[in-house]
Design a protein around this nucleic acid. Structure first.
Lengths: 156, 156
DNA sequence: CTCAGTGCAAAGGATTTGCATGCCG
DNA sequence: CGGCATGCAAATCCTTTGCACTGAG
């Protein structure tokens, strides 16, 4: 899937498109795309930024904590959602590629906030190349990479 | 590259050098470089790879769990040790730069193992430049970056 | 002497799980 | 119907903390 064929966030069709893609991916793995999972995805798509579990439940109190965790787990395993481990308190979750454009994170080590950042595509290509070379030299099967900038945000 | 000024791991002087650097850094922050902390560092330097707390305690049973955690915390705050959050069970710890040459990680999402990898310095420079540009555009104070390759290791 | 550091045991807290029930296919 | 999915409450388990004691300066 190429970036320009993805509806931009906020687009009326964005959610529908996302639901379609997720539905088919779950189906392929013999999982159901239930209303609870749909709500979960909707909350995350609308937030447009990485959320913790408390964030998610606060955004939609109908979601039960344990089910949310279980569903996040299913969606992460299915490659639909990505888990971001900051080490401070809660993990953060966000839609995975290609539902979201490839990007990285700027993480505040004081308050734990996370912001998305985008690298120049030339740099991104070089990194990709480097990593895949390294992986193949080590018999490692790459799935994705993460590049995080840690430091202090404007507010801290 | 300043790598050649750092004794290589295994070098007789390596540990002495590391202890000196850490000692002065702790002193600057009004912390003592006690024998417990020294042992902790020694275990990690000898392992030469990221370790979890159980790894550390297993390697030196004299180390008490709570003290090890507390000392890791002190050393992390002092910038001597780096904490790696994989999200699976235990956090991993390793000596920070410049005690260890700048590097990144290959993380197995199945078994949680972590291996060090080194990027081509040209790529590394470009990434650095990109990130610092982005940081300054956002009023973010960068401290360090992490670049992890996630996938399945040879054994999984 | 003083106060940071230590070790034990207990607490804390994010995440997971057991179990009975609901619902999709 | 059969089995995945759900929700509540309880359990799990990594990590942190309280407290009394020890050791370095």
């Amino acid at each position: 899937m190429t970036a320009e064929s993805l509806p931009v966030p906020g687009d009326k069709d964005h959610l529908a498109e996302i639901h379609l893609q997720i539905g088919s991916r779950l189906a392929r793995q013999e999982h159901r795309y239930t209303s609870g999972r749909r709500q979960l995805v909707e909350v995350m798509a609308q937030a447009g930024q990485p959320m913790t579990l408390p964030d998610i439940v606060a955004a939609d109190p109908n979601l039960a904590q344990s089910s949310a965790y279980r569903n996040l787990d299913v969606l992460v395993r299915s490659g639909v959602i990505r888990r971001i481990n900051t080490g401070s308190d809660h993990a953060h979750f966000e839609l995975a590629e290609p539902l979201l454009r490839h990007h990285h994170h700027m993480i505040c080590i004081r308050c734990g906030s996370i912001e998305d950042i985008h690298l120049d595509s030339k740099v991104e290509l070089m990194v990709d190349k480097s990593l895949s070379d390294i992986a193949s030299q080590n018999g490692f099967t790459p799935i994705h990479h993460s590049l995080d900038l840690h430091g202090h945000c404007v507010d801290c």
